[in-house]
């Protein structure tokens, strides 16, 4: 087999491994929130994983900095909340979770994900 072909196979293989590692194995650190948290929406959610208390009202203040239309809505399906996020404007969502567990929040098309851990 020609050298260029071997290089292409190796690079492609490494590309696949890298893609898997980079996108699918990331583990975020949960940010513990007591009363309120500012979540910046820009190519994803920062912080992405938040930890809140059961039975207590917590304010999630979303501010979208990214004009991508995909991110113009945030959906907290488990809490029956779908909110439009106007660009550069703070939108506050109040949560008072009644049960503990892990709940995701996503963009309107379910491409970007965040996690809410209720303890």
């Amino acid at each position: 087999m020609d050298a260029d072909k071997i290089i292409v196979i190796v690079v492609s293989f490494l590309g696949i491994i890298f893609t898997y590692w980079f996108f699918l194995t990331k583990k975020g650190q949960a940010v513990s929130v007591s009363d309120s948290v500012d979540i910046v929406v820009d190519g994803g959610y920062s912080p992405e994983i938040i930890s809140i208390s059961k039975g207590k009202t917590t304010k999630l203040n979303f501010t979208r900095r990214d004009p991508t239309s995909c991110l113009e809505e945030v959906v907290l399906g488990d809490f029956k909340i779908r909110r439009h996020l106007p660009l550069n404007q703070k939108v506050t969502i109040e949560l008072k979770p009644e049960k503990s567990g892990e709940f995701t929040y996503t963009c309107g098309m379910n491409m970007y994900h965040g996690k809410i851990i209720v303890k």
Binding site: F22, G43, G44, M111, Y112
Partner: peptide, 9 residues
């Protein structure tokens, strides 16, 4: 922006 979050779309 997405790459910074290790996300792809």
């Amino acid at each position: 922006s997405a790459i910074k979050h290790r996300t792809a779309n």
